[in-house]
């Protein structure tokens, strides 16, 4: 990620200040995720404080959790799951959803109807039922978790991308291009995608937020991150009892989630013009 940033810069892509802040937040958490096992002060499963929901102190920088474990260590390790799994899942669901959405809009007809109705049906299946069937049928592991999240969020990405593409598809330049005899793949890549990339990226940013939040829900269904590890949403959930005390154990995981998701969305909103705009 860091290397690609510099090579992009060299190629003339420039961030504005807000974009840079977003980038730093995301990159910062990515570095934390990669180096977490090296920098955590305490083992994440060890009860180091006999008090619970302990305050910020020199010994425990972000206080202790509901069992008396060090919350800083748990957040640092949790970054691996929240950042890694969510990014992967959002990439899969959006690339699949957007590709299918554009294809359906360009080709239209039966393919469009079939795909649209199939994904509508998929979206109508209650997610708890879906999660339980996956756990029962395939079992629980990180790849299964990523795929489940991707499947749950693909129909939404598809629907939004299709709605955008249908509008572009009626534009004169697409009609011209089609009249020139260009193939579907060319139309999608060169005419449709560049024109919808802005909203699609915004959609991706938001979907990322939803996935970060759903992750902990699935963990509680037994599908996903296993103890003593926990993603950030699960950290908030297991320490929610500390909310009335304003415990750092519930505040800091929430701040971590907010900083990551705001970072991702600021980055997306302020991507260099060259990526964001259709002019090429």
């Amino acid at each position: 990620m860091v290397r690609s940033f510099f090579s992009l810069r060299a190629a003339g892509y420039r961030f504005n200040l807000v974009g840079l802040i977003g980038f730093c937040l995301v990159a910062g958490w990515a570095i934390v995720a990669l180096s977490a096992p090296l920098i955590i002060p305490y083992p994440i499963g060890e009860i180091v404080d006999y008090d619970y929901f302990g305050p910020i102190s020199g010994q425990f920088w972000l206080g202790s959790d509901y069992l008396g474990r060090d919350i800083l260590s748990r957040i640092l390790m949790g970054a691996r799951y929240t950042v890694g799994i969510s990014l992967l899942a959002v990439m899969i669901s959006c690339s699949v959803g957007v590709t299918l959405g554009m294809t359906a809009a360009v080709i239209g007809g039966w393919l469009d109807t079939l795909l649209s109705r199939f994904l509508d049906a998929l979206n109508s299946i209650p997610s708890k039922l879906f999660g339980l069937v996956v756990v029962a049928g395939i079992g629980s592991s990180i790849p299964v978790l990523v795929c489940t999240l991707a499947v749950i969020y693909t129909p939404g990405a598809y629907r939004f991308a299709r709605a955008l593409s249908v509008n572009i598809n009626t534009m004169d330049f697409v009609t011209v291009s089609r009249a020139r005899g260009e193939g579907t793949f060319f139309l999608i890549r060169s005419e449709i995608l560049p024109n919808i990339i802005g909203p699609v990226l915004a959609d991706l940013g938001l979907r990322f937020v939803f996935i970060v939040l759903l992750l902990s829900g699935l963990s509680f269904l037994g599908l996903g991150v296993q103890p003593p590890n926990a993603d950030w949403g699960a950290l908030v959930r297991e320490n929610i009892g500390g909310l009335p005390f304003g415990a750092p154990a519930v505040m800091f995981p929430s701040i971590a989630i907010a900083s990551l998701t705001i970072g991702v969305n600021l980055l997306i909103d302020n991507l260099p013009q060259k990526i964001r705009d259709r002019s090429q």
């Binding site: 937020v209 908030v236 959930r237 909310l243 519930v250 929430s254 907010a258 600021l266």
Partner: peptide, 29 residues
């Protein structure tokens, strides 16, 4: 524009149960 973005993402990134519980604590308790 920027504050709308940051606020809307900030708000949606807080887990629902936390929004609801905080609201109850403040306005009811």
């Amino acid at each position: 524009d920027r504050s709308v973005t940051i606020l809307s993402i900030g708000i949606v990134s807080v887990p629902e149960f936390m929004v609801a519980t905080s609201a109850v604590l403040v306005f009811a308790v």
